[in-house]
Simulated scan of single mutants.
Amino acid sequence: MRSECPVRAVASGSGGRRSYLVTGYEEARLALGDARLSKDTAAFFAGVDSKRRLHPAVAHTMLAGDPPRHTRLRKLVTGAFTSGAVAGLRPFITRLTDELLDRWPADGPVDLVADLAVPLPVMVICELLGVPETDRPQVQRWSAELFAAGEPGRTDAASYAVAEYMTGLIASKRLRPGDSLLDRLIAARDGEDHLDEDELVSLAVLLLVAGHETTTHFLGNAALALLRHPAAMERLRSAPDSLPQALDELLRFDAPVSTSTFRFTTEAITLGGTEIPAGVPVLVALGAANRDPRRFPAPDRLDLDRDATGHLSFGHGIHRCVGAPLAKAEAHIALRAILTRFPRIRLAVPDERLVWRHTRLVRGLDSLPVLT
């Protein structure tokens, strides 16, 4: 599709509706930065009788909005994810990684997804938000259910559970303030930034869910890529200082987010030589764009010497993932620990038995059995 028509109409749901799928790199980058592509889902679906019953705090997050509202909300959280702020979290991430790996059996098998890639990011974002340790397992389950492909009822129920939990947590923090990111957002709401209650709950839910789900798949996909390429794994093991640069190539090679979040045209546009009418969804296939040979020669080869810094796995433009520095820090610490502690790590099942999650938005494994 990418080579024949990098922007093309595709069937979308029932009733003959159409969306436009973008698979080329340059076209994807342009689309992600084009202000004529709106993310205001409330405006797009206004008046539509949907069977979905997502909680408004989940349905209308910062990701589902445009400037100036998006700009104001993003500004409030950006400071928590700067390189300096993330550096302060590295000792906690390192300690938590070691604790999780200490539980791995000496001879395996172990599920790298369930026993590292899932718990590490959720515990880190819970620590950042000030979620009590006793609540973190339940929060993790709700978040997983929000991405339950093909089970809308289960997803809708989870959206209410997590939103109601965050509403209660905010109320308790008002009574007993602390120094977490959520506490700072509460102070901003009560200060000159004037976050309203719905915005506050929505930001908290977005940070909780988006802050770990994609990182889970980043870790799983990166680990699998190295397990499939033993020479690359051995190279990183012998030269661990090269791992930070390798992270971008691992992100490009197997993006944890397959398709960008919802966008639609506010006016007719031309993209990649294709005319797209106003008022239709545009799906940007990040994983396909990252494999575009016009931008990345020999794209299906994992090349740790490649300069892959232009990949689109974190998006592009004003909606680029605000948590990218934290995700890369977690992946760096976790992968380095695995390479150091388990020099004989290998897949525990044939490659063809690996099961991928059945969802359009994210790309990740259900499990990754390994022998240590």
Score class of each variant (00 low, 15 high):
180 S>T: 11
4 E>A: 12
230 P>M: 03
210 A>K: 00
234 E>H: 14
346 R>K: 11
7 V>T: 05
223 A>K: 07
17 R>K: 09
131 V>Q: 02
41 T>G: 10
356 W>C: 04
20 Y>I: 12
69 R>F: 07
166 M>W: 15
21 L>Y: 00
152 P>D: 09
233 M>V: 12
90 R>D: 01
200 L>S: 00
84 G>I: 02
224 L>H: 06
116 L>Q: 01
116 L>Y: 00
57 A>R: 02
335 L>F: 06
64 A>K: 05
35 A>E: 12
129 L>A: 04
357 R>E: 07
154 R>F: 05
229 H>Y: 10
170 I>L: 15
175 L>N: 10
178 G>S: 11
216 T>K: 15
97 T>H: 03
351 D>E: 04
123 M>Q: 08
272 G>A: 10
154 R>W: 06
112 L>N: 02
230 P>F: 09
231 A>D: 13
5 C>A: 14
24 G>S: 03
342 F>L: 13
93 I>A: 07
6 P>M: 10
183 D>Q: 00
36 R>W: 00
235 R>I: 02
58 V>W: 08
194 H>A: 15
77 V>E: 01
178 G>T: 10
70 H>L: 14
93 I>R: 05
164 E>V: 12
69 R>D: 13
323 G>Y: 00
70 H>G: 14
54 L>W: 11
138 Q>G: 15
301 R>W: 12
354 L>C: 07
170 I>E: 02
333 I>W: 00
123 M>A: 07
311 H>A: 13
206 L>R: 03
251 L>P: 01
62 M>C: 14
285 A>M: 13
288 A>R: 08
55 H>N: 13
310 G>Q: 15
328 K>H: 05
325 P>G: 04
111 D>F: 00
120 L>M: 01
230 P>Q: 09
310 G>D: 15
362 V>D: 07
246 A>D: 06
5 C>M: 14
262 F>I: 07
72 R>C: 11
126 C>G: 13
14 S>E: 09
134 T>K: 05
211 G>W: 07
167 T>H: 15
260 S>V: 10
174 R>I: 00
172 S>L: 07
84 G>A: 07
361 L>C: 03
125 I>H: 10
123 M>Y: 08
150 G>M: 12
343 P>M: 05
202 S>A: 15
233 M>K: 11
4 E>Q: 12
235 R>S: 12
171 A>T: 13
43 A>R: 11
87 A>E: 09
312 L>V: 13
217 H>P: 07
371 L>F: 04
239 A>R: 08
128 L>D: 05
214 T>C: 01
314 F>W: 08
335 L>P: 02
300 D>R: 08
196 D>N: 03
183 D>H: 01
372 T>S: 13
352 E>P: 04
282 V>R: 00
184 R>I: 09
302 L>K: 10
